[in-house]
Nucleic acid binder design. Structure first.
Lengths: 109, 109
DNA sequence: GCAATACTTAGCCTCATGGCACAGTATGTG
DNA sequence: CACATACTGTGCCATGAGGCTAAGTATTGC
């Protein structure tokens, strides 16, 4: 669960930036190269690459380099962490204390 | 929609901090005073108050002061913004371009 | 009214974030 | 081989987040 907290934290932090949410949205349409992605955002490539790395570290995307081109792919399963968190939150306020709730109750420990 | 982006951004930023997620979780069990809340987190009251204000600004909670006690209340509807965002994201990768998707497509503009 | 309680305000400090420019490396292309 | 392309690495900078202490204000209880 400490693991879970760290992962959840990474996902929320990654999605807290509009540029990175934009990338996630764009990748929803399919894998895209770093260059093609970067062209859609008003910043330099090195700056953009930081966002890509943040997203990759969070597990929201993964990347593959072929030749000199790095392609980014959305990792949809990762977004399920948000569903889990929301479900847990609802479990709390509905007073439920089922297995999931118990598991996640240790979130901040 | 610029409005929507700002609000969504506030919510994601607010939830990007473990302390604030902890507060949201705690408030899921019911309204609580700032003092009672603060006692559950390892930091000073002024520091904790910053988190409360961030949460309030994001719209995730609202607070009422009665006498010298300020009570925090979770605003559940606000979490629906996350559901919306997730739904939109799914709409994108499912290739759907329905009304919601169209509306939210302008997110980063 | 005096003291305790419950914030609130102000100011300071440190580190992380997000941006930049510039130079370097690796890979395709003619 | 030369040159363009597509990142990649380095270092710098400004801002803001998140923490602290110390002092102030407003209520409540005795």
């Amino acid at each position: 669960m400490a693991q879970y907290v760290a992962e959840l934290d990474g996902v929320f932090v990654a999605l807290a930036d509009p540029t990175r949410r934009g990338v996630v949205r764009r990748l929803g349409r399919g894998p895209t190269s770093v260059g093609d992605l970067a062209r859609e955002f008003p910043m330099t490539l090195p700056s953009f690459m930081k966002h890509v790395r943040t997203l990759e570290t969070s597990g929201l995307i993964h990347t593959v380099k072929v030749g000199r081109v790095r392609t980014c792919v959305l990792n949809r399963e990762r977004l399920a962490l948000l569903d889990d968190w929301l479900a847990d939150q609802r479990a709390v306020w509905e007073g439920r204390t089922d297995r999931l709730a118990t598991l996640l109750a240790e979130e901040e420990s």
